[in-house]
Design a protein around this nucleic acid. Structure first.
Lengths: 202, 202
DNA sequence: TGTTTTTTGGACCCTCGGGTCTAGTTTTCG
DNA sequence: CGAAAACTAGACCCGAGGGTCCAAAAAACA
């Protein structure tokens, strides 16, 4: 965030963040401030006017993008049939996770895990952990309503999350895949939901 | 690998690789050659006698460690009951993947995915991909024998792999967890195998 | 033992990149 | 319009690190 409330151009601050996210995604943590400045069509000094250092710039960037991760985690509506709710949850997850942009960011967090463990932890808790917790709560609710038979909701949630995202996400992180098409997403989501229901149905 | 067959000390080459793997795991791709030399109790020049550059050193290191990834992927024996075979497969996978050393290496590959895509691809194909392929073949065999009802073995294998490794691996990559204890591994493996059998049983 | 090769440690070169400084221009606002 | 604050372009400082060089010590080998 801009350090002073004076006449600083807020829009430039945003442009810098946008450029930073681009360049860092492409080049990793070792991206240079010069290239970020060039991409943002801004002088290097201006970056230092807005964010005091490279570390602060990255922190600001993470703060802003954590919201993007957290957003698509909304729980499936409790009124649907559990199978459809699970499939819809899976679709949301796949769309959010298995694409080049999300993977580039995730790679960034992983890269920083050693130097800035608190950042990585925050991302983990705002992302996967929160997501699984909501899913677990949903599973517990459905079990109480007699529509599912889940004895350990937390573990079941991890299983389902892993089924859906596991391999695809790893291959994306290694840069092997080119993302999934919408029909592929539909198919995986539907199939995962169907199998999960067989495994945990009443 | 050592470049000349002369009087070069082969053991030193190994010591260098060992040190390199340690330091790179801790510090990431940006680890300095000086620290590797220090850790290997060797002069920097000696490293350059054995491996021409930092890139070559890392390539040699990856070559040697790919074997370690591939090793523990042996398929469960076909004579066991499928549930026990799956549980054993899951245990092997968890032990191999969810520990600080393996995660540090995987982080390295992910970090290099942008600069050296071929390396990342090789790791992926020698590791997860080969593992899933063997599991899929096993599932197909068991289905042919009438002990399972798997219509799409490749997808089922990804589901099982994801269930077992998915979340735990991601949290390790982000440096959040401290690995799993042996009883935890047993429990997860057994439960995953049990649920998978309910989902895909005859 | 003498020759050849390797190893060592440390100085050294050079590039890259974070961060600062400056001088001049543009913007904002009273 | 005039003053204060921001912005720009680019030079600049400095530390880090890849890679090379060198003279002396240590092995290896015949």
């Amino acid at each position: 965030m801009p350090r002073i409330a004076g006449q600083i151009d807020l829009a430039k601050g945003e442009a810098i963040l946008d450029a930073a996210i681009q360049v860092l995604s492409e080049r990793g943590l070792s991206a240079s401030m010069e290239e970020i400045a060039r991409r943002a069509r801004v002088s290097k000094q201006t970056i230092y006017n807005h964010y005091g250092s490279k570390a602060e710039l990255i922190a600001a960037l993470v703060d802003r993008r954590v919201a993007d991760i957290t957003a698509p985690l909304e729980m499936p509506g409790a009124d649907e049939h559990p199978e459809e709710a699970l499939a819809s949850y899976a679709r949301i997850m796949l769309r959010a996770l298995v694409n080049p942009r999300a993977s580039a960011l995730m790679r960034l967090y992983i890269q920083g895990a050693t130097e800035a463990p608190d950042v990585a932890r925050a991302v983990f808790e705002a992302g996967p952990k929160a997501s699984r917790a909501r899913l677990a709560a949903f599973l517990a609710r459905e079990t109480a309503a007699g529509r599912l038979a889940v004895d350990d909701p937390a573990q079941a949630a991890e299983f389902f999350g892993g089924m859906v995202a596991g391999t695809y996400q790893l291959s994306e992180l290694l840069g092997v895949d080119r993302g999934l098409t919408e029909p592929q997403i539909d198919h995986i989501a539907a199939e995962a939901a169907r199998r999960f229901l067989r495994a945990y149905g009443v």
